[in-house]
Amino acid sequence: MSEADQALDGRTTVTTTSALSQQLTTGIAIKPRTLLGDAWRRFRRHRLAMFGVATLLFFGLSVSLGPLIYQGYLLRQLEQEGMPISNPHPDLRALVDHLDFLSLMTPPNSIHLLGTDDLGRDLLARCMYGGRVSLAVGFVAMIIAISLGTFVGAVAGFFGGSIDQILMRITDLFLSLPVIPFILLTVYLFRDPVILAMGSPETGIFMIVVTVIGCLAWMQTARIVRASFLSLKEKEFVEAATALGVGTWAIMFRHILPNAMGPIIVAATLEVGSAIITESTLSFLGVGFPPDTPTWGRLVTDGSQYLQAAPWLALFPGALIFLAVLSINFLGDGLRDALDPRSRL
């Protein structure tokens, strides 16, 4: 433990003692320390995790609210430049598709803050739009994979016996599936009906992509959760809960699961990154989003062609993917340390 940590610990003790004395003197009860409160306190001290949270918040705000500011700016700049948008009701989508033939492959400048590609499309607008898609894909696919994996792992680990056997063989089956051909097949089979049901190609493809990625990535989580459950279910607190007559599902999800949270969170954070990257693979193979939907992965793929002539085309979206995945990993790191009840600070 470093000096800084000791100092911090010292300060905590001081505050606690002063609070105690305050309570003794004033008679006002201070707030008791809770599990989550402790976690938050520990989390705040994890600098890299805070950096991750800040970056993710910044990305979140940039892709959701950023376009509102940037749209007006870009529209004015295009007007001045002489390539105004013909669409009378421009939105982010119109900016993404707008071809500015007066600035082709220009490096970052005052009109196009991150430069343009070979057709004069604004890279920042495309990164914002792509960020919405990529981040949404990453998080939704992660939620699907983690829920599925946790459920399967928990049931297999807790009940054991033949249920465990069956579920684990299913897990093995999924692990041995060749992922890319399987995704291609699924997309070919279900693309048209899903697009038809969802109304637009973009939403339809989104649904398929997140489902497919999510449903092919839960196996690792299931194994991790099963392993944790196998060891945790023998612990005394489980016995105590059983003795008190707590129901099976409550024991599984209220008593055991919080103790297995650490590894799940790490798996979850890794999942977000790999989902973003799998999505770009799919786009590259032509079964992902339509070619005019600029996801981060697609922007890197397209830009890599021009790495010498226009390096910013690949480097900016590449840096975004890199930062996003890194921040999520930091966040996971911090959450794991914070939520682990054994790592009391």
Binding site: S86, N87, D97, L99, D118, R121, P291, D292
Partner: peptide
């Protein structure tokens, strides 16, 4: 899938829009 063809698609899409 071909860089040039996707460029043409983008131009045609904007033209028709």
């Amino acid at each position: 899938i071909n860089t040039i063809r996707q460029g043409v698609q983008a131009i045609v899409k904007t033209n028709l829009a």
